[in-house]
Simulated scan of single mutants.
Amino acid sequence: MSTLPQNKPQNNMTYKIECVVRSFLSIVDRVFALLAISALLGIIAVVLLQVVSRFMLPSSPIWTEELSRYLFIYLIVLSSGLVISRNRHVRLELFQAALNPVWTKIYHIFCHLLAGSFALYILPYAIKYAQIGRWQTSPALEVPMYWAFLSVSFFFALTAFYSFMSVLLILLDRDNQGVSS
């Protein structure tokens, strides 16, 4: 037998909003997971090319090390939002087990709001930092360093987005931690 209220309009509306938000986040998660997997596969291909070329060719391409470094940076950036959405980020959990479900929920909201607010605060500075790269090019690939520096802006934007979406989901989730909305 279900313990959830069946006919309350606000609960039904909350459930619909939660479903829409979860569906949207599922699509966004898949896009970023696909991009992160692509970056990882790119790293594997570039490093394999570098290793094979060192042993089988007279010289190895110079650009492989640089490209693998940039792919690694973007792998971390693209994965950062997925870490937040799955609640796997680093945070103080020393006293969390002693909290009751309501305080645990409040603690999670606080952590996400703190991380998201910090990311929003830093984001304009990260964008200014990326602008520095417009006048520089990478040594081997000769691409604008703007793309490497822009990874910092992407990181803080994803952190803010996923942190605030996590807060929204915690507030909408009636079954989370046994607390009803």
Rank of each mutant, 00 (worst) to 15 (best):
3 T>L: 11
4 L>S: 13
4 L>P: 00
4 L>M: 11
5 P>W: 07
8 K>W: 08
8 K>A: 12
10 Q>P: 04
14 T>D: 02
15 Y>V: 05
15 Y>L: 14
16 K>E: 07
17 I>R: 03
18 E>D: 10
20 V>S: 10
21 V>M: 07
21 V>K: 04
21 V>F: 06
22 R>I: 08
25 L>D: 09
29 D>N: 14
35 L>A: 12
39 A>Q: 07
44 I>V: 15
47 V>P: 02
49 L>R: 15
51 V>L: 12
52 V>T: 13
54 R>Q: 13
54 R>M: 14
54 R>E: 09
61 P>R: 00
69 R>Y: 09
70 Y>M: 12
71 L>T: 00
73 I>L: 15
74 Y>H: 10
75 L>K: 05
75 L>P: 04
78 L>A: 06
80 S>W: 00
83 V>N: 02
84 I>L: 12
86 R>L: 07
87 N>D: 14
87 N>E: 14
87 N>A: 11
88 R>L: 15
89 H>L: 07
90 V>N: 08
95 F>L: 14
95 F>R: 08
96 Q>T: 15
96 Q>M: 11
97 A>Y: 08
98 A>Y: 09
98 A>I: 06
100 N>C: 01
102 V>A: 13
106 I>K: 12
106 I>M: 04
108 H>E: 13
108 H>V: 11
110 F>Y: 13
111 C>K: 03
112 H>K: 05
112 H>W: 01
113 L>G: 06
114 L>F: 09
116 G>Y: 01
119 A>V: 00
127 I>R: 09
127 I>G: 05
127 I>V: 15
127 I>C: 08
130 A>F: 05
130 A>D: 06
131 Q>T: 11
133 G>K: 08
133 G>N: 05
134 R>I: 11
134 R>A: 07
136 Q>L: 13
138 S>T: 12
138 S>A: 06
140 A>G: 07
145 M>F: 03
145 M>C: 04
145 M>L: 14
147 W>F: 11
149 F>M: 06
149 F>W: 07
151 S>A: 15
151 S>I: 01
152 V>M: 11
156 F>N: 03
158 L>M: 01
159 T>S: 10
161 F>K: 00
161 F>A: 04
166 S>I: 05
168 L>G: 05
168 L>R: 05
173 D>E: 05
176 N>I: 11
176 N>G: 10
178 G>E: 02
180 S>R: 14
181 S>H: 13
181 S>G: 13
